[in-house]
Simulated assay, not measured.
Amino acid sequence: MTLDLGRLRVDILATEDLSDSDVEQWQAIQASHPAFESPLLSADFAFAVSRARDDVRVAVYRRGDRAVGFLAHHRRPGGFGRPIGSPFSDYHALLCAADLGVSGPEAVRMAGLKAFRHNGLIDPHGLFAGTAEGQHTYAIELSGTPEAFLETVRAASPKKFKNYRRLQNRLAESGALRMGPDRSQATFDQIMGWKSEQFTRTGVQDVLKPDWTRRMMQSLFDTTDGRMTGLLLTLYAGDVLVGGHFGVMAAGVFHPWIASTNPELAALSPGQAFLDQAIRSMPALGIRVYDLGPGHDHYKKPFASTEREVGVGLTVVSGAIGTLPRVKESVWSLGGLDRVSAVSRIRKRLDHIAAVDPSASGRARGLLEAAWSIQKRLASADAKA
């Protein structure tokens, strides 16, 4: 589909319809600004997601015959757009230069969308000026040696890291700690299995359950060559698997989504031991940036060297075309409902369910699991009362 709106011409393409020139220009724009360096903003990630889902589209903004902007997204019914790879889209962006010539909402409208959900917007040019920030993401970047970096973070929280070191020493009683990339299918399956068990145990929707996420993760694990590869890092204590991180890596930036540890070692804080060993291994692994993404501040923040806010919210286009999304969004604000924490959590859970599994059966399953989780928590609260 092509839209010609005067200043820019917009092509709405499936990834397989992108030309070699389009992909080269995508890479050039991504390389033009450090804020765009995440593998999740790459054409390669869009291709990886499109191999698992059929609703991936890319709005290619052209000035003349030259591509000057890219908005990769999932095109959902009713003209609703979600970031590519959602809910694994810790970062997303309208990739373009500062002089695109239109605002973010105008770009969304030109893409033929009525609304676009943001849950990790990178916007260095301020095109989505009305989008709220507030979600924090964390990353580790070494300016010197790993040892010097770890000494700096220890100095900032000496008591906390003294305890981490004590628990890590106990962990090492099972055998020498060793960290590295892992190509074992059995280990990959174990890391994924532990994560799914954690989701079930904590009442969080299992993002690894839908067929498309399993296909995508397996495909990425199998991708060992190219600009972007899948990477599984594991930590062992002797012959005991302590835990692993799995995600994507490109140009020295590693972005893991899946972090899981051996539940039998939970008392020894294996997650902290993993990060300690991962930081020590970064130079040997060619990792320049270890991007921890958003959430779990208590776990990530003590180790992070950089922290930034990303955009969250909903962009709704102006005019009659955006009326229905605006009405749906405003319902959550009636009588100040959006300021009630329980309502806010329900809203986020419903949106998460919709993002995780686009199928009707998957959403129904997600609602049932959410109801079961609420019932379980209420029963637990009653038992403690």
Rank of each mutant, 00 (worst) to 15 (best):
Thr2Ser: 13
Leu3Ala: 08
Asp4Met: 04
Gly6Lys: 04
Arg7Gln: 12
Ile12Lys: 06
Thr15Asn: 12
Glu16Cys: 08
Ser19Cys: 06
Val23Asp: 11
Gln25Asp: 15
Ala28Phe: 00
Ser32Tyr: 02
Leu41Phe: 11
Ser42Val: 05
Phe45Met: 13
Ala48Phe: 11
Val49Met: 12
Ala52Pro: 02
Asp55Tyr: 05
Arg66Met: 09
Val68His: 07
Gly69Cys: 07
His74Pro: 04
Gly79His: 11
Arg82Phe: 15
Arg82Gly: 08
Pro83Cys: 10
Ile84Phe: 07
Gly85Tyr: 14
Pro87Lys: 10
Glu106Ile: 00
Met110Lys: 04
Gly112His: 13
Lys114Met: 01
Ala115Gln: 08
Phe116Asp: 05
Phe116Ser: 03
His118Asp: 13
Gly120Gln: 13
Pro124Tyr: 05
Pro124Met: 05
Gly126Asp: 15
Leu127Ser: 04
Thr131Ile: 15
Glu133Leu: 05
Glu133Gly: 10
Gln135Asn: 12
Thr137Lys: 06
Tyr138Thr: 08
Tyr138Cys: 09
Ile140Tyr: 14
Glu141Pro: 03
Leu142Asp: 02
Ser143Trp: 02
Pro146Trp: 04
Leu150Ser: 07
Ala156Asn: 13
Lys160Ile: 12
Lys162Tyr: 06
Lys162Pro: 00
Tyr164Glu: 03
Arg165Asn: 05
Gln168Glu: 06
Gly180Met: 11
Gly180Thr: 08
Gly180Cys: 07
Ser184Glu: 13
Phe188His: 02
Asp189Cys: 10
Ile191Trp: 01
Trp194Arg: 06
Thr202Ala: 04
Thr202Phe: 03
Asp206Gln: 01
Pro210Met: 04
Pro210Trp: 04
Phe221Cys: 02
Gly230Ala: 01
Leu231Ala: 12
Leu231Ser: 12
Leu235Tyr: 14
Gly238Met: 08
Val240Ser: 02
Gly244Val: 08
Gly244Ser: 08
Gly247Pro: 01
Gly252Leu: 13
Phe254Tyr: 15
Phe254Ile: 00
His255Gln: 15
Ile258Pro: 14
Thr261Asp: 01
Ala266Lys: 13
Pro270Cys: 05
Gly271Trp: 07
Ala278Thr: 05
Ile279Glu: 02
Arg280Pro: 03
Met282Leu: 10
Pro283Arg: 01
Ala284Pro: 00
Ile287Pro: 09
Gly295Arg: 04
Tyr299Gly: 01
Lys301Ala: 13
Lys301Glu: 10
Pro302Trp: 06
Ser305Val: 03
Ser305Arg: 13
Thr306Gly: 03
Gly313Glu: 11
Leu314Pro: 06
Val317Ala: 01
Val317Thr: 09
Thr323Met: 02
Leu324Tyr: 01
Pro325Gln: 03
Pro325Ser: 05
Arg326Leu: 00
Val331Cys: 02
Val331Leu: 11
Leu337Ala: 12
Val340Asn: 08
Ser341Gln: 14
Ala342Arg: 12
Ser344Leu: 07
Arg349Gly: 00
Asp357Met: 03
Pro358Ser: 04
Ser361Phe: 11
Arg365Ile: 07
Ser373Thr: 09
Gln375Glu: 09
